[in-house]
Design a protein around this nucleic acid. Structure first.
Lengths: 241, 241
DNA sequence: TCAATAGTGTCTATCAGACACTATTAC
DNA sequence: GTAATAGTGTCTGATAGACACTATTGA
């Protein structure tokens, strides 16, 4: 009701940070399927010194939330996100030791494999399986819970929106796209049914090319079609790409 | 990466405010159907003095975001929300005149009709149709866009989750529940199909009672069933009710 | 030839929309 | 009785899962 003088009270407002849950696809081997990974940063200060945490930091100056999230992401992984959406803002009073903090958290998808060279070489950064972050020892603050929530949201979204291709390169086979879905969902999908549903959704286009050099029938290569899905409510401050 | 000293930099972080888009159901008359309404507050300070704005204000001290949203809601409407979820955090650098501001916005459903007496008597508060806020003259800041986004999210959610009953009282008929859905969606629904789908979802329970005094066959009264829908990802900091 | 994956076709159960039909009240 | 809404039943078209089947490559 009375918030006109918000600016003057800046000092009385809790500090604000931006973090990002970054998902990437780790290529599968012959035996094990592809898996979803995420980068964490080792904290070198108190509180939670030495524990793994989400990449992020304070929101400075006059940068937008989204820009800040992308900047911290680039700093720690050297990658530009192919998808960056706001996840949730955590502002509880019991988020862990240390001062009161409000965190605006984003989630991102990046392309991993083809640009290993771009990854920063920093012993303070490591990649972990997204489906078992708690196994790696407790994360700093409430970050374990945040990762779980991000994964739940990603799993829900992958079921109705065309986002999985953003874990892959420009051109991809349907098997690769299915592998991405399987890695996100953590379960096998029927190849025939997957093909049918994903083609019916209209999110992919046949390039006419095929992938050669495999020891079986060469699969077709597809691209993501630029189409607006009316059933998806877009991120209001998201990049309109 | 380096966010350990967020607390010490508190002063460098933009101010933080909490606002809420509150939805209520305005009972329909014989001619026109029920409609979705929301309360707005007239600003009495610059910037945007005299314009209508969402109820809200700065986030003070050590209250959680959710608690702050509920408090501002109660101040302006005198009502307690039956549903309160986080909507989005707006932190762009071009949100309107005045200083830089980050707004964590919630959306809420309240019960309107039965407690008219509880509504605050303040000329600075008025209720508007949710589907045509822009008609009422431009709102302050980017609040028109926020209302549009909240309505889009509510419409999406009402299609797959049992939330519409939170606009009604403890007991309700299927026609009332359908009227709530129709008010949210802005379109008519087939009574027979609505009955079938909503009963199949399992979100309602037959109380065994009927509503008498109507000039037709008396309808049964239902209550919201307390059941967890596994297809809905819950608000991570939401009230576990 | 065989192994392996790509890709097609089909059956079935489920579900949403359309809509005809019956039931029960006030008047 | 009539008007009006409550509530049931049924048909149809779209869709997802299960799975049999054909196609095309490397070795």
């Amino acid at each position: 009701m009375d918030w006109a003088n918000v600016a003057e009270r800046a000092g009385s407002t809790p500090p604000l940070a931006v973090s990002t849950v970054v998902f990437a696809l780790r290529q599968g081997t012959e035996d094990e399927p592809a898996s979803l990974r995420l980068p964490l940063v080792r904290r070198d200060r108190e509180p939670y010194r030495g524990r793994w945490a989400l990449p992020g930091g304070p929101l400075r100056g006059d940068t937008s939330l989204r820009t800040a999230a992308a900047a911290y992401l680039e700093q720690t992984t050297g990658l530009a996100p192919t998808l960056l959406e706001q996840l949730y803002t955590f502002g509880g009073t019991d988020r862990g030791e240390g001062a009161r903090l409000v965190s605006v958290v984003y989630w991102a998808l990046v392309r991993f494999e083809e640009s290993d060279a771009a990854l920063v070489d920093d012993p303070g950064v490591a990649w972990f399986r997204a489906d078992s972050v708690e196994v790696t020892g407790a994360l700093a603050f409430d970050h374990s819970r945040i990762v779980d929530y991000a994964l739940a949201r990603l799993r829900a979204k992958v079921a109705y929106a065309d986002v999985a291709h953003r874990l892959l390169g420009e051109r991809f086979t349907l098997a690769q796209l299915r592998g991405a879905h399987e890695a996100v969902l953590g379960q096998r999908l029927d190849p025939a049914n997957f093909r049918r549903t994903v083609k019916a959704r209209g999110g992919i286009e046949d390039t006419g090319e095929v992938l050669t050099g495999v020891r079986n029938r060469p699969p077709r290569l597809y691209t993501a079609a630029s189409h607006r899905d009316p059933s998806v409510v877009p991120d209001p401050e998201g990049d309109p790409t």
